[in-house]
Design a protein around this nucleic acid. Structure first.
Lengths: 179, 179
DNA sequence: GTCTATAAGATGATAGAC
DNA sequence: GTCTATCATCTTATAGAC
């Protein structure tokens, strides 16, 4: 794993725990065993790191989605795969969605970072909407919107409570509509 | 308005925009026209300010709820009042719930602050659950959980998008279940 | 209650050696 | 690519005068 990737890996995990401003170049460098000046070679400004972080996260998310739904997968299973990505992060890593954290502090982030977060939300609403549409839902776009909002909110509350009960309730609600 | 209240007022608005770590004593003091040292007289440590902030927010939220549902109000109207408090903050002030923001960065906050955030979530889930129960809902507690998660998530995404469409979709989803 | 003054430490960032 | 060295600035926080 090259340095740039390692930086992104560490920064993502930390930001998903404590937010953008609470993560410093020093912290990341210390965990890597290098000096903070080295990070500036790869990401000159923190804004550059933030943008790269969200882009990579969005791409990885899309890749996981594609891997879980390759071949001819029915829309119902595809939506379940979407939910499972969130569940996996929550149960295996105790992490919420990167964009839930950054979205919560969006007005305080460098504008280019906020734009990436916004894109993540809209891209995934569109992805979900296409599946709801394929299932013949009336108001597919609104079902997509509530599904994403529900997952993002439930992840946050679940981590605060250190209890996935609320996430499970959210999943149940999504699944009930699918049947 | 006394100084302590003024500090809380300014700190709340700013933290609901940019998060806990991005708000400094200096910023708040500058907006008040005083020096940052003065703030430490009222709230010696930032953690004290954080705790007071969430407690006041939770109390105000509860007070607004009580004011909107005084007398004999049916549970359906009570839940609608809950939703309207969120809507009002979003449309009139472009602010999300304080606990949505702090919840997103919870593992990085002083522990006493996180506890207050956790209490806010649990208190309001209980409040909503009591209303769903009164309406005869099966799994009232899970309906309460999804309602809160949905509102919190929708507020975040709405602010990022500067568009209340997603919040409106969330409200529609809550209302549909109530009919 | 608010001020001045000050402290110790963190922060993002850069220049230049290796 | 990573290092040392350095920077200006910001951060929370305290002591003591008014």
């Amino acid at each position: 794993m090259d340095s740039a990737t390692q930086i992104l890996e560490i920064a993502e995990r930390r930001m998903r725990q404590v937010g953008y401003n609470a993560v410093s170049y020093r912290d990341i460098a210390a965990e890597m065993g290098v000096k903070s000046a080295s990070l500036h070679y790869h990401f000159p400004k923190k804004e550059d790191l933030g943008v790269a972080l969200v882009r990579r996260y969005a791409n990885n998310f899309r890749a996981h989605l594609a891997a879980s739904t390759n071949g001819e997968v029915d829309p119902q299973t595809a939506i379940a795969a979407f939910v499972d990505i969130c569940r996996h992060a929550l149960t295996e890593q105790h992490l919420v969605c990167l964009c839930a954290v950054l979205g919560a502090e969006a007005p305080g982030l460098p504008h280019p970072v906020t734009i990436e977060v916004k894109n993540f939300f809209n891209d995934n609403i569109a992805w979900l909407a296409a599946r709801y549409e394929a299932l013949g839902f009336k108001g597919a776009i609104d079902h997509a919107r509530t599904t994403l909002a529900l997952l993002e909110g439930a992840m946050i509350i679940s981590v605060v409570n250190d209890d996935i009960t609320i996430f499970n309730a959210a999943v149940k609600s999504i699944q009930e509509k699918l049947t």
